[in-house]
Structure formats: structure tokens, C-alpha cells
């Protein structure tokens, strides 16, 4: 990861392209890391299929995926968590940029950002366990959104690692069912990803 900070050396490689993060190919790291790639795309039918198709046809894996329209209804924002070494991530960014309906692509995990995933967990909760679960929820700022004699449904949002820590704590009570969204992210500070051309 260390050499990632100097990654503008080859900026010409993407001059006029849809994304900025460029990796100097002489210093590429082979270590595999998780990245969060965000795209602004045309809100057209089939765009998601183009993106997921690119991942599957080139053998890249999607760890999580979040899709939704933005405040501009003609634009959707897609956030993809994926793993790979620098070469793979560079190809993913370039191949995404190449899709005609993709307007902008950025690897948000390369700069300071806020990321969240939402999780709903149904936990077995009887007797004394109930209060213990409620205490844990307090600490994690999780909310109980449904109560039943035998179980609780708990809503929590946060980073994947926070949510997983919570899951681990719930495990001994018995997790009956759970579901989570894809991760979403925004850069911190005034920097925005917009469709405006450079």
C-alpha cells in the first residue's frame, strides 16, 4: 500500500479518462487488498448487467454491491467492494471506465472516506439474554426494530468490521437470520464525485 500515494506519475495514462487513480506500473504492489470502487452511471436499464458482466467475464469477484439513484434521477451511483492486487484493481477501474454508460469511476478507498453497510439481524432472545442483548445494542448504537417473545430484530449500520464484531457477540445467543446491504461510501471533506467534465 505504501507506494500508492505516488500514484499520479503516469497521469497521462488516463488523461481524459473517467477516473483519476493511476498506479505507476513499475511500483505496483502484488499484495491483495479490498477496494471500494464507486461509479456514477446513466440510470438506464441494463447498466448493472454490463457492470456485473464485466466482472464475471474477466474473472473478478464482487464482494458487495450497492446501487441506487442519486439526487439527479438520471444518474445512479454504484458502489462495488472488490479484492485484488494493484494490477487487477487498475484493470477493474479501466474496464469500468470503458463501459459506455459509466460516467465516472473512482476508487474511494484510496482516499479518506466514510463507508457504511446496513444490517438487520434476528437474534434469539429469551430470559436474561434479552437485557444483555439490549446492552450490547446500546454500545454499538444498534436499534431494536422488532420485538417478539423469542427473538429481536436489530438494525445496525457501520463499517463491515464493526458489524461483524456485533455479529460475533450475537453468536452465542443464536443468530436466526440476518441480511446486509452492499457497502456505500462518500469521500470526506469537500471533494465530490460529479458528472462535470474536467
Amino acid at each position: 500500500m505504501a507506494n500508492k500515494k505516488n500514484n499520479k506519475i503516469n497521469s497521462a495514462a488516463t488523461n481524459g479518462s473517467k477516473y483519476d487513480a493511476v498506479i505507476d506500473t513499475n511500483e505496483r504492489a502484488v499484495a491483495i487488498h479490498e477496494h471500494l470502487v464507486t461509479c456514477l452511471v446513466e440510470n438506464h436499464p441494463g447498466v448493472l448487467a454490463r457492470i456485473s458482466g464485466m466482472f464475471s467475464s474477466r474473472g473478478y469477484n464482487i464482494e458487495s454491491l450497492a446501487v441506487g439513484t442519486t439526487h439527479d434521477p438520471s444518474i445512479s451511483r454504484i458502489t462495488i467492494a472488490c479484492r485484488g492486487d494493484d494490477r487487477i484493481i487498475e484493470q477493474i477501474l479501466k474496464q469500468l471506465s470503458k463501459l459506455i454508460d459509466v460516467i465516472r469511476v473512482v476508487d474511494v478507498s484510496q482516499s479518506s472516506h466514510v463507508e457504511r453497510e446496513l444490517m438487520l439481524v434476528k437474534v434469539a432472545a429469551t430470559g436474561a439474554a434479552r437485557s444483555e442483548i439490549m446492552q450490547i445494542c446500546d454500545i454499538f448504537r444498534a436499534r431494536i426494530v422488532d420485538v417478539h417473545h423469542d427473538c429481536l430484530v436489530i438494525e445496525v449500520s457501520g463499517t463491515t468490521s464493526k458489524n461483524e464484531a456485533l455479529m460475533e457477540l450475537f453468536e452465542r445467543f443464536g443468530i436466526l437470520e440476518m441480511t446486509r446491504t452492499g457497502r456505500i461510501a462518500l469521500n470526506r471533506g469537500p471533494e465530490i464525485l460529479s458528472v462535470a467534465e474536467e
Partner: peptide, 18 residues
């Protein structure tokens, strides 16, 4: 002309897209 062709198979030290 295609940035995705550059450094896809072989790392390239002087890429010129255009």
C-alpha cells in the same frame, strides 16, 4: 487509444493514451 489495453498484460513504463 484504449487505456485498458495499457499495462493489461505487461507493465508499461511510458504509456501514451491517444
Amino acid at each position: 487509444v484504449d487505456p485498458a489495453s495499457i499495462s493489461k498484460c505487461i507493465p508499461v513504463s511510458i504509456p501514451i493514451v491517444g
